Amino acid sequence: MAEIDWEEPYCGEGNNCFRIGTDSEGNAYIAVAGQEDRPLTDSRDALRALIREIKTGRADHLL
């Protein structure tokens, strides 16, 4: 697995914390904080859209 540069965890109120990361090839990753060894990967645009939905409260149940 490529070396992933993780951002600080984002924790919603009363929800799981998650982290976003990127590798040197520009791939984006998301993982529940503490489980960075099992990330999901997708395009940056797809993850950015998911994060926007989570932050607005419309998709927090997905985590």
Rank of each mutant, 00 (worst) to 15 (best):
E3Q: 12
R52I: 13
Y29M: 00
L50F: 14
A49I: 09
R44M: 05
E7K: 06
G57T: 05
G57W: 08
E36A: 02
G26V: 10
E13F: 04
V32C: 06
F18G: 05
R19T: 14
D42H: 12
R48G: 01
D37K: 11
Q35W: 12
M1C: 07
D5S: 04
L40T: 09
W6F: 05
R48A: 13
V32H: 07
R48V: 00
A33T: 11
Q35F: 14
W6K: 02
D37F: 03
D45S: 11
N27S: 10
A46E: 12
F18M: 04
D23L: 02
L47M: 04
L40A: 14
K55T: 11
I51M: 07
A2L: 08
G57I: 05
A49L: 10
T56S: 15
I54W: 10
R38N: 13
T41N: 12
K55P: 02
A33W: 05
C11T: 15
G14V: 01
T22G: 04
E3I: 09
D23P: 02
T41E: 10
P39L: 03
D45R: 12
K55Y: 10
A49C: 02
D5L: 02
R19C: 15
G26R: 08
A46H: 10
A28M: 08
G34Y: 01
A46Q: 13
S43V: 07
A49K: 13
A59L: 14
I20W: 01
D23Q: 05
E8Q: 15
D60L: 06
G21C: 09
G12N: 02
A31S: 08
C17V: 10
S24Y: 02
K55V: 10
G34F: 01
T56D: 14
I51K: 15
I4A: 09
G34N: 06
E13Q: 11
D23H: 02
W6M: 09
R52M: 08
L63W: 11
Q35S: 13
Y29E: 00
E36Y: 00
G34T: 04
W6H: 08
I54T: 06
E36H: 06
I20D: 00
L40K: 08
A49G: 08
T41K: 04
T22R: 15
T22Q: 12
E3G: 02
P9I: 07
T56I: 09
P39E: 01
Y29G: 01
N27A: 09
A2I: 11
L62S: 01
G34M: 00
E8P: 12
T22A: 09
F18E: 04
A33R: 03
Q35E: 15
D60E: 13
D37C: 05
D42M: 08
L47K: 01
A31W: 03
G21K: 03
D37I: 02
Q35H: 11
L50Q: 04
R19P: 00
W6L: 04
G14I: 03
A33C: 07
T22H: 14
G34H: 05
D60I: 09
D45V: 06
S24R: 09
G21S: 10
R52Q: 12
L63G: 13
A59K: 15
E25R: 13
M1L: 13
E25C: 05
R44L: 08
E7P: 01
N15D: 14
A31T: 06
I20N: 06
N16P: 09
L47T: 05
D23G: 01
G14C: 03
P9C: 02
I30V: 06
D37E: 14
